[in-house]
């Protein structure tokens, strides 16, 4: 396969551009979520999206208009459950996630089914991304990255030690809210663009790959973003060459990168 020929297709160009932006924003958010032991936040919010899409269809409102605020509320709800009820992050995600699914099933059942395929709102395909969606992914990536840059010290401090961050005068509740909102928007929109499997994978795998070889917090964020972008481009190329599903190929490439980083760490290339 000639690389120039591969890059000459419009749908490939759009997939690479949008996929790269989504990879950067998911990877950077993923580092923060994994370090705060909220790795499955993406999966949990995806299940809430199912319930909220069903609600939107039942109310005959464009589903994303219902999904975005409801997923934001759920995301904040997860944080409040951890903070107020004193339960672990995975359990809080499990509660909200199963509630989302249950509500979706009840609404779908009570409505007697929908004319539109509910799953089409949940499972996007990176190779079918349109021009408008490329702009959405660029805007979203810029929004998330600028916010993280603006609050970098606060986010770093509270990711490392929330209690110390509070004792330094950081408004932890406000930063938590901002991160919850950014995560919600990212999950809802990227799920629609590239599917839940890829969104969830891009939130976790580049982050854990970067943890193997990162030599500092900023360095780790940079490696995670680079890993995400490399996996998207390589995954699309591999899927095009040997006719495999693009999303699954990107996930597999991510796993290979994680394994290589893990092996390098074991061989003490990066750690003294």
């Amino acid at each position: 396969m000639d690389m120039l020929e591969f890059l000459s297709y419009g749908f490939i160009q759009r997939a690479i551009v949008a996929g790269s932006f989504i990879a950067v924003l998911c990877s950077v958010l993923g580092v923060l979520l994994v370090l705060r032991r909220l790795s499955l936040m993406g999966d949990g919010l995806a299940h809430v999206t199912f319930g909220s899409v069903a609600l939107g269809l039942a109310l005959k409102v464009y589903p994303l208009y219902v999904s975005i605020p409801l997923v934001m509320i759920s995301s904040v709800g997860i944080l409040k459950l951890i903070e107020r009820a004193g339960i672990y992050g995975d359990a809080a995600i499990g509660i909200v996630s199963s509630l989302g699914i249950a509500v979706g099933v009840v609404i779908a059942s009570a409505s007697g089914g929908f004319n539109v395929d509910i799953l089409s709102y949940l499972f996007g395909n990176i190779l079918s991304i349109g021009a408008a969606e490329v702009y959405i992914s660029m805007f979203l990536a810029a929004l998330v990255l600028l916010t993280i840059c603006f609050y970098f010290d606060e986010i770093f401090s509270m990711t490392f030690d929330e209690e110390f961050a509070k004792a330094s005068g950081i408004n932890v509740a406000r930063i938590n809210l901002i991160l919850a909102v950014l995560t919600s928007i990212t999950v809802v929109l990227t799920m629609r663009l590239v599917g839940i499997m890829l969104t969830s994978a891009l939130l976790i795998l580049p982050a854990v790959t970067a943890f193997q070889i990162g030599r500092g917090f900023k360095h780790t964020l940079f490696i995670a973003a680079a890993t995400g972008v490399v996996s998207v481009i390589t995954g699309i190329f591999v899927s095009f060459c040997i006719n495999l599903p693009a999303g699954a190929s990107i996930v597999l490439i991510n796993f290979v990168l994680f394994f290589v980083a893990f092996a390098l760490r074991r061989c003490s290339f990066f750690h003294e």
Binding site: C149, D153, E154, F160, S168, A210, F211, R215, G216
Partner: peptide, 21 residues
């Protein structure tokens, strides 16, 4: 497994006087 260096963590103490990133 937190990926931060000693220097970065000591620097976190400075936030109180910096007030913003």
């Amino acid at each position: 497994g937190f990926p931060s260096t000693v220097r970065e963590i000591v620097g976190l103490g400075l936030f109180a006087r910096k007030k913003s990133s």
